[in-house]
């Protein structure tokens, strides 16, 4: 009898504690946001599509068209052609496409790259209705990104 009464009171107390906790959480800021209206940033370890690194020292990528990424890629995403420039120096790519719709984001190309010029992009909203949008021409892509960087620097 006494045990039962004690159980009722401890139960009632635990309900009060629970109510207090939910009230406390109700007054906190919501963790969700209105996504398409409010911009958001992906996690710092987010793995988006593959892209060229733009090195600040040279202001461009450092691809030497060694085809290591093309060879190691399990899904055959890359198509690369490269030549030695007429004025001499390192071999440079003159054609570099990447097929994101085949890519499994395994990061093998990034590990294989001898000049460390490949990375995951932080972009995340890449959905498209058109299959051709997933073929990225890295050389054009790099030029566009350089322009954007210049615009932000000059502003």
């Amino acid at each position: 009898m006494f045990k039962n009464i004690k159980e009722i009171f401890t139960g009632a107390w635990s309900i009060l504690v629970g109510m207090f906790i939910t009230f406390k959480w109700m007054l906190k800021r919501p963790v969700t946001i209105q996504y398409p209206k409010q911009p958001t940033r992906p996690s710092p370890v987010h793995k988006g599509r593959i892209r060229f690194v733009i090195f600040p020292a040279t202001g461009t990528h450092d691809c030497i068209a060694c085809l290591k990424c093309q060879n190691i890629c399990p899904s055959d995403c890359f198509e690369i052609k490269g030549d030695k420039p007429a004025e001499g120096g390192k071999k440079r790519p003159n054609f570099f496409t990447y097929n994101f719709s085949n890519c499994s984001l395994c990061s093998l190309c990034i590990e294989a790259c001898p000049t460390k010029t490949l990375e995951h992009s932080p972009e995340f909203n890449l959905a498209s209705e058109n299959k051709d949008d997933y073929f990225y021409n890295f050389l054009n892509d790099v030029e566009e990104r350089k322009k954007k960087v210049d615009a932000t620097v000059n502003r």
């Binding site: 939910t22 959480w25 109700m26 906190k28 800021r29 919501p30 963790v31 969700t32 946001i33 209105q34």
Partner: peptide, 9 residues
Amino acid sequence: VSAHIQCRL
């Protein structure tokens, strides 16, 4: 009320 208790909007 349910949304704010669950930290939603």
